[in-house]
Design a protein around this nucleic acid. Structure first.
Length: 853
RNA sequence: GCCCCUGUGGCGGAAUCGGUAGACGCGACAGAUUCAAAAUCUGUUGUCCAUAGGGCGUGCCUGUUCGAGUCAGGCCAGGGGCACCA
């Protein structure tokens, strides 16, 4: 029996593709282009199964599109800046660059062993000056367009390590390394004006019809457009107004108090001589900032003693509180509270014994007193003077009109989206190309001085930013006046790096950040594939960058990714020893009795739930070992085969073995049946026997289905159909009938080509065995013969009272009357009807007959 | 707390438009081959009653329909996201 040697064959074809430069993409305006991009990896050191799944999906699309005649760009690179490199530098005393480039080398080798159709000539790493220098150029252009500015914002400050902490480095309010209580500090930070693009980013979502609905929805919620009003409340006894933002002016008569944020100017002013407020503001600064933490935290506040005058009710004043549930970043940092119709306001009012006047009757007319649950639905207005009887929608308009009339309010649109703070006080990132000069202020670096390279000789032993305490690096001259000046030591958020890499890939060595000709040809990305975890930030930032680059004239489109696909995670069973320790899957086996045991000790093992692969739970498999054991083709086949690609999949050994078996089976079939098949290029026979035609139909139906499935990225469906076709091929015994040997070759070739995108090495080998002298990667998708995909008879289900009683075989498109007669003549149908009168017979052509009795 | 997603055999899942639920794969069982095993091949495999045959079945409950996994309303369970969104 012939065995397929995956290791040899895979190496052979990988070398062939590389020699022939098969996947190097060049502009060819005579061909339609297709840009396939998978989210580039962070070079952590090893690829994981999630990468295998992600890159296999992209590769299937890339290879399929090539076969359909597209000029395909499919590049790969490295999201190479970031914290882990600095952590490694501190922990292992290795320079971040050295650590990063070693990881890249290893991961490149691993990716290459997967047989991906990547254009490696376009490889880039964001930590290379050739990349980040161009990013600095982009930054200067953004500065010119005033898309960047500086602003004081709060950061997490570790007083022991003297460093700014990322959110993930703050654990229970303490620094992850020092354990010191984290303080909030104000720093001057660089910001991108993404909030100016809120409306554009929101509107753009409407055109992204090849994006998952849920990603668009998440972005829509993130941008958070709301229509409301800014209203001035006069502060009683003072010459000051308190400006609030509200989306519910219809509930103004239900107002019971006012609340301002801890960081609101009013709170800041009052805390100077009010220790209670000062304490409370400090407490707010210690509170977590996540929506969840705040929503679950008890609603608290401090009465300022000030009162605000109600705009509609003469003589009525409302107490003003500083409250922990009001956010300075949203609206005006101040609100009026209507406890009856807002849950947070209600919780607060109940705690401090404030009144809860109801002003909206429920849809069912209920005007019951509000107890513990606010009524937030629509209804008609009550207890509200001139608004009484109006719907909430109409009341909003009327209330607003009155406010405008009184000169106390204006209609406004508000967005939740805030500007993007990009400053990071770290070494391993792209330096911000700016100089601080005593005379000239903040000055942009001259373009000809770029790239501003990171210094190599840095130490991570001292706390703080290595760039800041480097002996010479930050000392420079002002680009404007030439005097001694200080370089900006902040580097950029790594999200900046990944916000434009898709454009740089088109011409990664070009002098300009983006090359006009290349970008015009290749962009936008036709199919982008990556994890759902990037649904908001990365994708929104990239969309902002496209708009910003459009502003600077670098590109002429707003949306970078025309098609987006988000794949699910890879999961695995978890295992624990009798002692409760997590175990690696490779340390677990089954004993003779079929029970799971530890491979070395023989101790019983508890099998836990199927969970997302994680190092802490040890439920990980190493792609390197998998590829070594089963071959890249089998690994690729399995990650595509069982689960819908947008859902989580469970990695099982049985599944991988199954994929390996199919690979062997297909190989063996071609080897064993090659002699029975016609030679390559044999003329089309004039006649095909019925059995032979049946095989041809199976082949072309499969081709149709697989093509359709790949177009929709339903790879699991494509594979299921291929299995069915494999069975039909195995059962085919008519190679010596009329046209049989020709049809057998046709079927084998179709099989080889359609399996190709998924198992590229095996199929290149089979293509060669089938006598081809050109490689499969350069071959075209088979031509579909449509007549062979339609049957001239159909099986119709016959139901009585909606229950299946029989199936009948009839000519396709047979007249309904004939079908009905046939159905009613069926014995089982007659029996099921019995002596009940027939009321109606529904005949759906080519599908079903339903007898209603 | 708010928002989103997902619930179909022992398991992963299939089911273009509302039209034969369970394709395909895994596992299990039986058989063939083998000295034996591995590998391979063939068959069976939702569930209950059973002799033919029938009843029940897509998380639960209602509804629309000749007909619902699919549509509508209300629940339940699991998973994910979250920057106080007034």
């Amino acid at each position: 029996m012939s065995r397929y040697n995956a290791k040899e064959v895979e190496a052979k074809w990988q070398a062939t593709w590389e020699d022939k430069q098969t996947f190097v993409a060049e502009i060819d305006t005579s061909l339609p282009k297709y840009y396939v991009l998978e989210m580039f990896p962070y070079p952590s050191g090893n690829i994981h199964i999630g990468h295998v799944r992600n890159y296999t999906m992209g590769d299937v699309v890339a290879r399929y599109k090539r076969a359909r005649g597209f000029n395909v760009l499919h590049p790969m690179g490295w999201d190479a800046f970031g914290l882990p490199a600095e952590n490694a530098a501190r922990d292992k005393n290795v320079h971040p660059a050295e650590w990063t480039y070693a990881n890249i080398a290893n991961m490149r080798r691993e990716l290459k062993s997967m047989g991906l159709s990547l254009d490696w000539s376009k490889e880039l790493a964001t930590c290379h000056p050739g990349y980040y220098g161009k990013q600095q150029e982009l930054f200067l252009e953004f500065m010119k367009e005033e898309l960047v500015y500086r602003k004081e914002t709060w950061v997490n400050w570790d007083p022991v390590d003297m460093t700014v902490l990322a959110n993930e480095q703050v654990i229970d309010g303490r620094g992850w390394r020092s354990g010191a209580l984290v303080e909030k500090r104000k720093l001057n930070q660089w910001m991108f004006r993404i909030a100016d693009y809120s409306e554009s980013l929101l509107e753009g979502l409407g055109d992204l019809d090849r994006w998952p609905e849920r990603v668009r929805l998440m972005q829509e919620n993130w941008i958070g457009k709301s229509k409301g009003a800014r209203v001035h409340f006069k502060i009683a006894g003072m010459d000051h107004n308190l400006e609030i933002y509200t989306t519910r002016p219809d509930t103004l008569y239900g107002a019971s108090f006012m609340a301002v944020a801890a960081d609101h100017p009013l709170s800041q002013k009052l805390m100077k001589d009010n220790p209670a407020i000062a304490d409370f503001v400090a407490e707010c600064h210690r509170m977590g900032t996540s929506e969840e933490a705040i929503e679950k935290a008890e609603k608290k506040g401090v009465d300022t003693g000030l009162r605000a005058e109600h705009p509609f009710i003469e003589g009525k004043t409302l107490p003003i509180y500083v409250a922990n549930f009001v956010l300075m970043e949203y609206g005006t940092g101040a609100i009026f509270a209507c406890p009856a119709h807002d849950q947070r306001d209600l919780d607060f009012a109940r705690k401090y014994g404030l009144e809860v006047p109801r002003v909206v009757a429920a849809a069912d007319g209920s005007e019951d007193e509000i107890e513990t649950e606010a009524y937030t639905g629509p209804g008609s207005i009550i207890n509200s003077d001139f608004l009484n009887g109006l719907s909430t929608v109409e009341a909003k308009k009327q209330a607003l009109a009155r406010l405008v009339e009184l000169n106390q309010g204006v209609e406004t649109t508000n967005y939740r989206l805030r500007d993007w703070g990009l400053s990071r006080q770290r070494y391993w990132g792209c330096p911000i190309p700016v100089v601080h000069c005593e005379a000239c202020g903040t000055v942009a670096e001259k373009a000809e001085n770029l790239p501003i390279e990171l210094p190599d000789d840095v130490t991570f032993e001292k706390p703080g930013n290595p760039l800041d305490h480097h002996a010479t690096w930050k000392h420079t001259h002002c680009p404007s006046c030439g005097e001694a000046a200080i370089r900006e030591t902040d580097t950029m958020d790594t999200f900046v790096d990944s916000s434009w890499y898709f454009a740089r890939f088109c011409a990664p060595r070009n002098d300009k950040p983006v090359s006009q000709a290349d970008v015009d040809y290749w962009l936008p990305v036709d199919q982008y594939i990556g994890g759902i975890e990037h649904a908001i930030l990365h994708l929104l930032y990239s969309r902002f960058f496209s708009r910003a680059m459009k502003e600077t004239g670098a590109v002429d489109f707003a949306e970078p990714f025309e098609g987006l696909f988000t794949q699910g995670m890879v999961t695995h069973e978890t295992y624990r020893s009798t002692g409760g320790d997590w175990l690696f899957p490779q340390d677990v086996t089954h004993n003779d009795a079929g029970n799971p045991v530890h491979i070395e000790t023989g101790d019983p093992v508890t099998i836990g739930g199927v969970e997302k692969m994680s190092k802490s739970k040890k439920n990980v498999v190493d792609p390197g070992e998998i590829i070594d054991k089963f071959g890249a083709d089998a690994a690729r086949w399995f990650v595509l085969s069982d689960s819908p690609p947008d859902r989580d999949m469970e990695w099982t050994d049985a599944g991988a073995t199954g994929a390996w078996r199919f690979k062997q089976r297909l190989y063996r079939f071609v080897i064993d049946n090659l002699e029975k098949a016609a030679v390559k290029g044999a003329p089309l026979p004039s006649e095909f026997s019925d059995n032979v035609t049946a095989l041809r139909k199976e082949a072309h139906k499969t081709l149709l289905h697989v093509t359709d499935s790949i177009e929709k990225l339903h790879f699991n469906n494509a594979i299921a159909r291929i299995y069915e076709f494999m069975k039909a091929l195995g059962d085919f015994k008519a190679s010596d009938e009329a046209g049989g040997s020709w049809a057998l070759r046709e079927a084998m070739e179709i099989m080889t080509v359609i399996v190709g995108p998924m198992m590229p090495h095996l199929t290149e080998e089979l293509w060669e065995i089938l006598g081809h002298t050109t490689i499969l990667a350069d071959s075209r998708w088979p031509t579909l013969i449509e007549e062979l995909t339609v049957d001239n008879t159909v099986t119709i289900a016959v139901q009585v009272k909606g229950k299946l009683r029989a199936t009948i075989e009839v000519q396709k498109d047979a007249p309904s009357a004939d079908v009905e007669a046939l159905a009613l003549a069926e014995e089982s149908v007659i029996k099921a009807i019995g002596d009940q009168p027939i009321r109606k017979v529904i005949v759906v052509p080519n599908r079903i007959v339903n007898v209603v009795v």
